[in-house]
Design a binder for these strands. Structure first.
Lengths: 222, 222
DNA sequence: ACTATTGGTGTATAGCATACACATATGCCC
DNA sequence: GGGCATATGTGTATGCTATACACCAATAGT
């Protein structure tokens, strides 16, 4: 059952897929979207995404699909890679430009559609299409960029404690870090600054609140 | 004058472009292809590339165009990024998946078509489409990967002297390096091994020949 | 044998990443 | 109010890695 649009074509159709991460309750979560496409996929999960229209860029396509499917806007995005395996879509030839998107969990931006959900990375089921591969690429990109950029700023709210920041790192990297060295590194590199405010939360010493310095993504060691 | 193929479409056409580098005579060169497309471009230079067919992946498309336009095959390739600005092609909507390709200059693989040429990076003219931007991205990728991978292996022939390897680095990085530290680094990381052979070339001490160890791309510091 | 040219070698130093243990501020319970 | 539980916050010693730097060696040509 070839799709009538691409069946007449000698060329591929272009789409985008987004791997949107957040850290919530100290866990790394991915945004998933329901895929219902009998006879190939029945009630599977996949990444949100869709066609690139003739009058939009890949990035605009990502924005549109995130907004439409999950009510998410204004998040950090970067292009990941383009996936072009010939049989990656069982219906017809679709080439997909994949994006990595990051947001923070504190802001209570829950998906509007019931057809999307946040899923802890460790519990992601087998996904439709080649989305497992795309997710793996995104995870790898995020992991490595955490070490040599300040990309974590997009996973954190405006103000945060060092414990929260460290938990974000640990949940992405998958291993624990030393508290003192962690703190020292961020402060000596000037990546974060104290806001002067404190957060009281439960029966313990109040934590100082920090914010990332500057704006935008910064690559270290340049 | 809209292209008849894409004019009927709501969607973009997909293409590839390749930035193919080599080091020859101690300079970094890039492969250019002639673009003749009145009234937009008259005898301009651009990157080699072309359409992705319905039955080929992006990588296969790159291989096909490199082979067809310049007679080049069997080179290292990696995906760079996808360029989707709406007006990047003046005729119609074309989204391009750009690739970085590397080869060594020693092998005398000269372009077969007269419509392509090797151009030293420093002398590249203003290119057609958004190819300046693509070239800049490729240069940046190569420069940075040189520092944290053994990607230089694809710019070198099987056996080479340390002087040749260092000249390759210097021509890409654009600055000179210390001979002793350079050598020490490659040997202590086990990236290269001595072949035991020597090359006599002119009125000076013969140089020992080295080869890269292992196979494939290796990322350091893992 | 002398010269010109490129090849080849070692050490000292500074900066950075890592390992590691205890005191502090709060809320809660008795 | 005193003691306890919990998360916050701090400094030093050590090893490794990157860098800076100068001289001798082997050959070809004259």
């Amino acid at each position: 059952m070839p799709n009538p649009i691409s069946a007449q074509l000698r060329f591929a159709v272009l789409a985008t897929d987004v791997v949107c991460f957040r850290v919530a309750s100290g866990r790394l979560e991915v945004l998933l979207a329901k895929v219902h496409l009998p006879p190939f996929y029945k009630n599977r999960w996949g990444l949100p995404g869709g066609i690139i229209l003739a009058d939009e860029t890949a990035e605009q396509s990502v924005e549109r699909h995130l907004k439409t499917k999950a009510g998410i806007a204004q998040v950090y995005k970067e292009q990941l890679a383009t996936f072009s395996r010939i049989d990656r879509d069982p219906r017809n030839r679709v080439v997909s430009v994949a994006y990595l998107a990051l947001m923070h969990g504190g802001e209570e931006r829950e998906p509007t559609a019931t057809e999307t959900r946040w899923c802890p990375l460790a519990e992601v089921p087998k996904l439709a299409y080649d989305h497992d591969e795309i997710l793996a690429a995104a995870t790898e990109r995020l992991r490595s960029k955490l070490s040599y950029t300040n990309i974590a700023r997009y996973l954190m709210p405006r103000a945060f404690t060092f414990s929260e920041l460290q938990r974000a790192y640990e949940s992405v990297l998958g291993h624990v870090l030393d508290k003192r060295n962690f703190r020292k590194r961020f402060l000596s590199l000037g990546l974060v600054r104290a806001t002067g405010k404190k957060r009281k939360e439960g029966a313990q010493r109040p934590a100082e609140l920090f914010a990332f310095t500057g704006t935008g993504l910064r690559t270290l060691g340049l």
